[in-house]
Design a protein around this nucleic acid. Sequence first.
DNA 1: GGCCCTGTCATCCGATCGGCTGACCCCCGG
DNA 2: CCGGGGGTCAGCCGATCGGATGACAGGGCC
Lengths: 219, 219
Amino acid sequence: MTRPAAPAPDGAPVRILVCDDHAVVRAGLLALLDSAPGIEVVGEAGTGEEALALSAKLAPDVVLMDLQLGEGIDGVETTRRLTAAPGASPHVLVLTTYDTDADVTRAVEAGATGYLLKAERPEELFAAIRSAAQGRPALSAPVAGRVMAGLRGLRVSLTGRERDILAQLARGLGNRDIARALFISEATVKTHLRRIYDKLGVDNRAGAVAVAKEQRLLP
Amino acid sequence: MTRPAAPAPDGAPVRILVCDDHAVVRAGLLALLDSAPGIEVVGEAGTGEEALALSAKLAPDVVLMDLQLGEGIDGVETTRRLTAAPGASPHVLVLTTYDTDADVTRAVEAGATGYLLKAERPEELFAAIRSAAQGRPALSAPVAGRVMAGLRGLRVSLTGRERDILAQLARGLGNRDIARALFISEATVKTHLRRIYDKLGVDNRAGAVAVAKEQRLLP
DNA sequence: GGCCCTGTCATCCGATCGGCTGACCCCCGG
DNA sequence: CCGGGGGTCAGCCGATCGGATGACAGGGCC
């Protein structure tokens, strides 16, 4: 597609770790990135836990992260832990299917360097990876548009953590399981829930989920 | 009625048309399939309309179809028209992210030869493509399991009263208020709730609301 | 250097939920 | 005529939720 003659701007290639729970998508990305000059895939992970372990071992420049991970911790939590890690943490480039406001803000607050849609052209992906490797933020055009166009879409201003809680809530988890999923105590979960109820104008979890789905605060 | 011209398994490669609205995924699949022996990608489409036009022009053996297409007609409708087309119609292999019962049945009814999840291993994909080229059906293991387990058994068929309860539930009402709203006793509400949980595969009201909203079981 | 917001954690307690078991009525279809 | 599905109701009990209140650390803002 692009000329292979275009060399990487820097001597060393950008070292990438790919994290996506879909094996086919992962394999496709690997094949695609192999064709890109100046980009080298050094590992692949199918779960958040795997990504954390591999990142610690491989120290990649950039982690390409899908927000929707089937089992275990989700992409946001993985991103949070990746970027919060002591020492040289990788830049996380979120590559996902959806562009809901909640997702973008949660990802950015968790420390993501960029947010790309899978609908993007491959060239955009390559460019974003090279940007991310240097810590320069990158947003997909439609996403950037939304962000510019105002948090107008964000009628309810939930904090990042509150949205995390809400996401787990919508999976039907109890407080204990939410706590485990996010590595916090049940007491903290309850505190967040209380604030969420206040902000959404409800007084129980069923109502919160209903409002969240209605306002499209969730994926 | 589907396969007038059988492709030679070994002599000629299987000719593929890839249809997915995500450019990155499409490019990834292209790169991945290029590495597979006996498989040749002859075209790619980003919308259902494109797929129909290209299929008519290129006459591929297999169309790799994503069910979720952003703009225009969806994957199911595209599949329907592809397989209903006069003359030699391609075999459609659905490759999608989700495995809800509704999707599978809709796709199969529309004439899909196979249904694969993107979470599948690449080798499974290659094998499925070669199967599909000869009209042999292919289902992802998890999908096949569901189908065996009794398609209609898992079908979400709520009774009228159950939907009434669900609607109130989504308003965040407690059992007492639901009872009052529907002029029945709390005991009856609880009975309905338990059946709803069973049918939706959840075990609490938050999960029920989430599933209901997801499956569009509510107004 | 204070102050607010966010995120974290804790305890107490009443209210509610969810699981379990069993029951009755009505209507439809075999 | 009897079986079964849908709708109704009841009691018991442990688990969980939600309300109230208080506390502390870190980041950002003035």
